[in-house]
Write a protein that binds this DNA or RNA. Structure first.
Lengths: 267, 267
DNA sequence: CAGTGGTCTAGACCACTGG
DNA sequence: CAGTGGTCTAGACCACTGC
């Protein structure tokens, strides 16, 4: 990415109702100013100009930088905040969202204990079973937008609550962006894995898709989760995406649902 | 709340920075104008002044009615549209959302075929197995905010795709709002059940919570879904809410996931 | 107190729809 | 063409934070 150093004073080129002279008919291609601002902010997030947890410039500064009114950058920031990429705090500023915050800690983990809220059961215990380099199979490659045979990192871990194993997860990551990730670094890190990804590899997970099925425990599941063979388990296949919808993680989770359940709120 | 009948020409009383003289200290209770507008619009939706599928007054009309600027009603409508209560259509107007629309038809049904998108398998076949009046058990009463023993309607149905039974559902409804609902009316109605609720009972489902577990098929499940005893199934318990967060339906669904999966997209 | 985001206004103009 | 929602601006003022 040939990111130019911040040509600080020159505003980026913005255009309204571009004529698009080469466009064939029936190509509206009208993009409102605030959408373009959104893209520019997204670019700065992606490039790492503003890192997770940091404050971005104030609305007034951004308005000056982009040479638009404050209301226009406000609309852009509003939408990015609605998408959970930014976090507004009245009186303080606007911040890049991060998985390290307590509140949003488990934004992508929908399994909660049947009684009581999350946290009532104490902190999760994370045990890394293994972590190794391997080659992507066809389905893993497809999920991560790689080619079959490309190098990937594979990890397996068990999450326990109150000493009881509840979740078994197999995780695949593309090797290139995560070069240097080892079982030790995973094991030693306290806190959510996605927070480690942010600080160590500049990878922020922004969106995820999960496909859920019911399966019967195989011997691997039975051993790791300490349940009888054949026990019904939730199979949760997640693909997590960074900015710009690039798939960056495939995760296959197996959840016990005798004391927990997958909670999904829709509106 | 002593809601006065629509005093048509007189604008509803709005106040900014209410002094709240009787408020004890540390009681901010500041509500922005657009939030109050939101509540008023919500009231009109709830009362049935504007029905699902209908257009609500234009922003200019609403601004005049509430004696605020167009920008303020715009912000109120924006939020209601973001919550899927209203639907904006440029050039045409703003409409009350409805479950009868093709696009949002299955907003609360997250089960999709493994290959191909929804609809590729043809329309769903809905078979009502039974529908009867009964008394609410303790857990049903709790879910519907009733008292144990209150009268409820209970229905059981099977959804099939391409002739294959995929979903078994047990549905509980409070008897009062749904007086007159019979197995015949359910069976004869073509289209989503929530669309029938809107047109026949003025009940619009707005929000839902689902708790998902993996279970083994019992004989009831096995018979209705034509799977072997013990087959892992998704157990999906849904509570659906109308405006103002009143629980209006309890639904226990059992999903086969051999050809379908529960799809959950998070952002 | 200064600086931030949050609200509200008034007005101009644009994009889309349908008669 | 009129009417709708959508964008953009400029300015005033309010609420919250922290020094």
């Amino acid at each position: 990415m040939p990111t130019l150093p911040e040509t600080s004073d020159e505003p980026d080129v913005l255009q309204l109702t571009e004529a698009a002279p080469n466009a064939t008919l029936a190509t509206p291609a009208f993009s409102p100013l605030y959408q373009q601002i959104k893209s520019l902010i997204l670019g700065s997030l992606r490039s790492g100009e503003w890192k997770p947890g940091e404050a971005i410039p104030s609305e007034i500064d951004l308005a000056a930088r982009f040479r638009v009114s404050q209301g226009t950058v406000r609309k852009a920031v509003d939408e990015l905040a609605a998408e959970n990429l930014l976090l507004r705090r009245q009186g303080k500023g606007t911040f890049v969202a991060t998985h390290a915050e307590q509140q949003v800690q488990f934004r992508f983990l929908k399994l909660v204990p049947d009684s009581g809220s999350r946290g009532s059961e104490g902190p999760a215990q994370r045990d890394i079973i293994e972590c190794r380099r391997t080659r992507a199979s066809a389905d893993v490659a497809k999920a991560l937008a790689l080619r079959a045979g490309d190098t990937v990192l594979q990890a397996r871990r068990v999450l326990s609550f109150g000493g009881v194993p509840v979740i078994l997860e197999d995780i695949w990551l593309p090797a290139t962006p995560f070069k240097g990730l080892t079982a030790e670094r995973l094991s030693n890190y306290r806190g959510p894995m996605y927070a480690l990804f942010e600080t160590e590899f500049n990878v922020r997970m922004v969106r995820a898709e999960e496909k859920i099925r019911a399966i019967a425990a195989t011997d691997v599941h039975a051993t790791q989760l300490k349940v009888p063979l054949g026990t019904p388990l939730l199979s949760v296949e997640r693909i997590a995406y960074t900015y710009q919808s690039e798939p960056m993680e495939l995760r296959r989770g197996y959840y016990r649902t005798d004391t927990h359940h997958y909670q999904n709120d829709m509106s």
